[in-house]
Amino acid sequence: MIADGAIPIVPRGVRLHQDRARNRWVLLAPEKTIALDQIGYAILSEVDNRSEFGEIVSRLASKYEAPVEQIRPDVAGFINTLAARRILEVI
């Protein structure tokens, strides 16, 4: 699990890109391309290299009118999966 005070960071060289041909967002990283669904894009849209994990979860819970307890493990798993591949960092 990720601590509420941890800050997810998009490292240099990683960026969001809109794949207009397939009508979806992708994460472009060195030698990797990751396709996102709408929820994944919504999560990454909240990652501004300043917001703490707890703040991101709270904003998403408000936006989707869903309980924090439901959203937190999904967002943590999502971020951890990307962090394991060095596509995100958590400080």
Partner: peptide
């Protein structure tokens, strides 16, 4: 739109590999 577990799929050589999501 309702909340759902997000999906991550790695695109590699034209193939898409599920990294994270309901089916991973």
């Amino acid at each position: 739109m309702a909340w759902a577990k997000p999906v991550l799929r790695e695109i590699d050589c034209g193939m898409e590999i599920n990294m994270y999501g309901p089916d991973s």
